[in-house]
Simulated assay, not measured.
Amino acid sequence: MDRRTRLSLIVVTAAVLLIAALGTVLILTPRSLPETVEPQREPPGYALPVAPPLAAATPAGAGTQHLTDPEWVASVARETGIPERALAAYGGVALWKAGEMPSCGLGWTTLAGIGAIESDHGRHGGSSIGADGTVSPPIFGVSLSGDATAHIPDTDDGAIDGDAEFDRAVGPMQFIPQAWRNWHVDAGADGVEDPQNIHDAVMAAANYLCRASGDMAAPDGWRAGVGAYNHSPVYVQSVANAANAYAEAAP
C-alpha cells in the first residue's frame, strides 16, 4: 500500500469533544480521520519540523490562498490527498503567520492535521470547498443541547449556526458562534468574515494557536497550542499523527 493510499484511508469517530481556553470554546463533532503513514512504536506527541510552503513569486490576487506557489499546491495535494483548495488555505495562512508572527513557528502540516480531524478538509458529510473557499453544503455540528454533549444555549439567535435554541459548531475548523466572534477574520479577502470559508476559518485557527502558544515549533509549545484547541490527549496525538503523515508524504 503506497503512502497516498494510506493517507486517504478513513476511519470514523463518534466522539464529541469539548475544550475551553482563552475565553473561547471550540466543539468537535463526529468526523473522519486520516490514517497515519505508518504506526510508530513511540510516536511523538507533536508535529515534527517541516519545510515552509513554497511561496508564489507573484500572488495571483488578494487573500492568503494566493500566497502559495500553485505548483507546490498541486504537487503536495497529489502526494497527501489533501484537496488543493484546502491545501492552499493551510499553506497560505502558514506563510502569512510566518511573516506576521515568525516567533510562533506554525507549520502548514499542523493546520492540515487539525483540518483533517475537524472536517476531513471541508469534506465532512459530503461537503466540498467551492472556488471562493466556502464549503457547500455548510458544515454544522450536532446541537449542543447537553444530551451526550456540552450544554451551550443559543448565543447568536441562530444567525451563524442556524439553531436558535442551542449553539452548534460550524465550518471546516468547527468554531461555535461565541468563539467565532472572538476570532473572526476575512483571510480570503472577499469582504466577508465567514466560518464556513476555509481561508477565514484556517486563519482564525492559526491566530488562536499562536495566541495560545508563542512557540509552535517547540514540542512543549506545540502541545500547549494544540492542547488549547482541544484539551484531549487523544486529540493532540491524532493531530500530531496526521501532521507528521503529511510531512512525510509531501515531496
Rank of each mutant, 00 (worst) to 15 (best):
L18D: 12
A56L: 01
A98E: 13
A60D: 08
D161F: 15
G99M: 09
G146P: 09
G162Y: 07
Q196F: 10
V202P: 01
A148Q: 09
L17P: 02
A89S: 07
L144V: 06
T149A: 07
T5N: 14
M216H: 06
S213V: 01
A15N: 14
A201L: 10
P153M: 11
A47F: 02
T80I: 01
R41G: 05
A187Y: 00
V234Y: 04
I139A: 15
L9C: 11
A247S: 14
D215M: 09
R31E: 13
M216F: 01
T24R: 11
G107K: 15
A169L: 06
A240Q: 05
V73Y: 03
I129T: 03
I198F: 01
T64C: 13
A131P: 01
I198K: 03
G162D: 13
D194W: 08
I114G: 08
W183R: 02
P233W: 12
L67E: 01
M1W: 05
A14I: 15
D156N: 08
P30L: 11
Q65S: 04
I10L: 12
D147K: 02
G146Q: 09
A205D: 10
P195Q: 08
W222R: 03
R78V: 07
T24E: 14
A112K: 07
A224E: 03
G81L: 02
A60T: 02
G225I: 00
A242R: 14
E42A: 08
A62H: 03
G146N: 15
A56N: 01
A212P: 02
G105Q: 09
N244M: 15
P30T: 14
G61M: 06
G146L: 06
A77E: 09
A164C: 09
R123L: 15
I160R: 14
P34L: 07
I198L: 06
L17W: 15
D163E: 07
G171R: 02
T29M: 13
I160W: 06
G115C: 11
P83D: 07
W183Q: 01
L144N: 06
G126C: 09
G221F: 11
S128N: 07
G91Q: 00
L28K: 09
G191A: 13
T149Y: 06
I27D: 13
A94V: 11
Y90L: 10
A116D: 11
G107S: 08
T36Q: 13
A217R: 14
S8P: 08
D147Q: 05
I139F: 09
A164G: 03
E79L: 05
P137D: 10
I114T: 05
R211K: 12
V73W: 04
W183G: 02
D2T: 08
V73C: 00
C210L: 08
G191L: 04
R85P: 00
A201I: 05
R31N: 15
V234P: 13
A243P: 09
T110P: 07
G63F: 00
A62Y: 01
F140W: 06
P102N: 12
V76P: 02
V185L: 15
H121Q: 02
S128P: 06
M101H: 04
A245K: 14
E71N: 12
A243F: 10
G126L: 15
V50C: 14
G23R: 11
